[in-house]
Design a binder for these strands. Sequence first.
DNA 1: TCCATTGCCTACTGGGGAGTAAGACTACGT
DNA 2: ACGTAGTCTTACTCCCCAGTAGGCAATGGA
Lengths: 225, 225
Amino acid sequence: MEDHRDSERPRSRRLPREVRERQILDAAVEVFAKHGFHNASMDEIAETASISKPMLYAYLGAKDALFIACVRREAAKLVEAIGADIGTGLAPADQLWHRLHMFFEYVQVNKAGWQLLHRQGDVPGEPYVQELSEWRERATALIAGLLAEATTDQKQPMQPEQTEPFAAALVGAGEALVEWWFQHPDFTAEGMAMRLMNLLWLGFGELVEGRSWFPSAKTETSTPS
Amino acid sequence: MEDHRDSERPRSRRLPREVRERQILDAAVEVFAKHGFHNASMDEIAETASISKPMLYAYLGAKDALFIACVRREAAKLVEAIGADIGTGLAPADQLWHRLHMFFEYVQVNKAGWQLLHRQGDVPGEPYVQELSEWRERATALIAGLLAEATTDQKQPMQPEQTEPFAAALVGAGEALVEWWFQHPDFTAEGMAMRLMNLLWLGFGELVEGRSWFPSAKTETSTPS
DNA sequence: TCCATTGCCTACTGGGGAGTAAGACTACGT
DNA sequence: ACGTAGTCTTACTCCCCAGTAGGCAATGGA
């Protein structure tokens, strides 16, 4: 039997299924992140994964299924990163700080995965929107929990109607800050987390202590006509 | 819908170009908002506008161009709403409050237009992303200006490196809040504006006065094991 | 050595939807 | 009446790309 090894295999051939699947997912995440779901073509994903198209379908199924698989994997990584079990007994503020820090570090290390989760259109009717909104909900719930916990000692613990929108806003602010960060990369993850922490926690602290902003009396807010 | 009452108009026919163009834009905004750019079909837009496809192309051009025209129109409305000239001499805080209020009212009244501007994927390489990011930049700049103005009296006026990310975060928080609002419609625009104002302005006020949050010393941010 | 299993490929089909050709209908001026 | 300018339509073409049919090749057990 001639071992015709002219050179190293130009294309890694005949790998066990498990390895291939990881390769494919890596390639898919990359391509989906670069072009978005719609503009990403299965051909390009196949080529990036150094594999032929039928393999794609044999292993991960149709485009929707493949995308969902990507989202699940990346979302799991993200949620694990920001939801990891930290040493018990940390004050909510410190926990939030820690998790924000983890978040920005995750994004920095895993840029493609982040863009996959963030830059898709939120159009209802798509098969994958459910999957996409899930991580956001989980993150929001996590933060809402922290906010509620932070006020359990107070006379008036915050109700979900208070913490939920606050948490949602915080998540949105975080996403927007990441986008800004991409255009100003000269900051550390810690610095970004610090920014977000300052923007929100200070106001939160004030709120908890009963202070709140209100419009000055004369500039009326009623319908201006 | 097919009220064939054999009376005058089975279908509004032969309208002057100007009127048709508005009809088409209205239909396009609706359809793009509902399905997103990619899943919206020119056929559906044509049908919604009660017109045939070639008219679409004759009047507004290709799909990209049509979408951009929609974005321009809706973005102009939005920017005009939040950037409108208010009575002079208002304090920055009151201005911000006013504009946030206008913003939430705009979204409430003009839901389709808002979704058009917000729910598309931000994938680089698309012909329309430039157009889409523009309104965000304008809004951010507007707010950044307010923040800067609010601190001109202070010993240390805030620099763009401070105000910009803050403004970007605020815009992101606003977008996220709107999304939350859509799922909890039992709040007024004023209430939502109030929420956002409280979340951010209080923290901002604290920051300006030199207070800032910092992690408690001992709980280190290194590996938590 | 030969078969079976499983990884893997080239080369196709089919459909959806963007964009168009070519002509019909209406209104108005002369 | 008759042209002509501008509105409007039916009925296509064509391309891109998701998804597939059917066959080749390597490994491993007998």
